[in-house]
Computed example of a mutant assay.
Amino acid sequence: MVYNREQLIGIVSGQMPAKRWKHVEGVMQTAVELARRYGADPVKADLAALLHDLAKFWPVERQEAVIRENGLNAELLDHDKQLLHAEVAAFISQRDYGVDDPEVLDAIRYHTSGRVGMTQMDKIVCLADYIEPGREFPGVERIRELAEVSLEEALLAGFDSTISFLLEKKKAIFPLTVLARNDLIAQLKKRNPES
């Protein structure tokens, strides 16, 4: 069965506190704006943003079970539990809600960690998650300003912010995020060899 947008809104909003649903609405709005600004499909951006935190408030044990039982990325199990929900949300979106667009599913899957070779949609949803209007953290205004001119520059600043936070807290950094950051630097260098 394929669900329409209104049905998905009911399903997703019913699985989280109202405050988190407000965040999801902000990510949806921001993802659509970024998609329009950078020439991506706003309908896909809206759908990926709508589903990105689908499993965020599931018990960690349930998220881990979905990963184990379905042969998903087991490397996530050895890292911060905050990473699990993205992989689980992509899987559940496909299995239970009929989302079969790989671009949408990947944008959901990598919205927390990033990856090497991020697609435009990956970048849009990941960045929208960082800068939606309800987000408040040191440096978010600068990331919002960068988002006006460059997806890559803004996302790089977002990853830098996350990595700095994790270093400060003496937490492990998921290797894929470091690789995603390095890949963004390479993309920006290729575009502007002088920098």
Rank of each mutant, 00 (worst) to 15 (best):
V149C: 08
A147W: 08
L156Y: 13
L155Y: 05
E145H: 13
S164N: 10
L166C: 04
A172R: 10
K171I: 06
A154M: 10
E145N: 13
I173G: 07
R135N: 15
V149S: 13
P138L: 05
I143L: 01
L156N: 04
P138Q: 05
S164T: 09
E152R: 10
L155Q: 08
E141D: 15
L151E: 03
K170C: 06
A154E: 04
L146Y: 09
D160W: 02
E145P: 14
R142I: 07
E152T: 05
P138W: 11
K170S: 11
A154N: 07
L146I: 05
I143M: 00
K171L: 15
E148P: 08
E148G: 14
V149K: 14
R142E: 15
L146V: 02
L156D: 05
L155A: 05
S161G: 06
G158A: 10
I143G: 00
F137L: 03
T162Y: 01
I163L: 06
L167A: 05
E168S: 11
L155W: 08
E141N: 13
L167N: 09
F137V: 09
E168L: 14
E153F: 08
L167F: 02
L166E: 12
D160T: 11
G139D: 00
K170Q: 13
I173Q: 06
A172W: 01
K171E: 13
V140I: 13
L166D: 06
E141Q: 14
R135K: 15
F137C: 04
E148M: 09
R135A: 14
